[in-house]
């Protein structure tokens, strides 16, 4: 089993952090995992993305053309990455900023108003955590428990005060799709 995830959004939405937490959750679950960001001049123009590949065996390559799952937090990223989801794959979009549309019929679509949910909790800054919660709900190999542990690990001692809000956002994401 090898699955790859693309996480994308605009700068400031905490995309790289969300990817890091997702990768840590896989590590905590004993899986092989590789995280890979877009970097350098690629980042100009305000969009950010990263790729997480999880595997039971050694992770072959990153920098893949297609993704099993795309988690997109803004319209620009939806437009770009909807084309790069494998046939039969899933795109999970933040409906607060992404218009409901289904340009392909060979993939699955999940729309959730992640931004609204985050705002209701207290801050749009935790939209990324809500999105991870939605991902955990949709994708079997993503574990809520390990995600929660990963949030704690990544925030560490220095940012411990933000832990409750982040966990709450994760929780809210997990139950966003009813």
């Amino acid at each position: 089993m090898e699955k790859n995830f693309i996480l994308a959004g605009f700068g400031g939405q905490g995309i790289l952090l969300a990817g890091t937490i997702l990768a840590n959750s896989f590590m905590l679950g004993g899986k092989n995992v590789t995280w890979y960001p877009c970097y350098g001049a690629e980042m100009r123009g305000g969009t950010v993305n990263c790729e997480v590949v999880v595997s039971d065996t050694e992770v072959s390559s990153v920098h893949k053309q297609d993704a099993d799952f795309a988690l997109v937090l803004n319209q620009q990223s939806f437009d770009k990455f909807v084309q790069r989801v494998k046939a039969g794959g899933t795109i999970i979009a933040n409906a607060t900023l992404v218009a409901l549309s289904k340009p392909r019929d060979d993939i699955k679509y999940v729309f959730a108003k992640m931004g609204d949910i985050a705002n209701a909790i207290g801050s749009s800054k935790v939209t990324n955590m809500v999105s991870l919660g939605v991902l955990a709900d949709v994708c079997d190999i993503v574990s809520r428990e390990y995600l929660a542990k990963a949030v704690e690990l990544v925030l560490g001692e220095k940012k411990k005060q933000f832990l409750p809000l982040n966990l709450k956002a994760l929780e809210a994401g997990c139950s966003a799709l009813v």
Binding site: A23, V33, Y36, Y39
Partner: peptide, 9 residues
């Protein structure tokens, strides 16, 4: 660049 930028356990 791949190795430099990627994170792995």
């Amino acid at each position: 660049g791949l190795l430099g930028q990627m994170m792995e356990p």
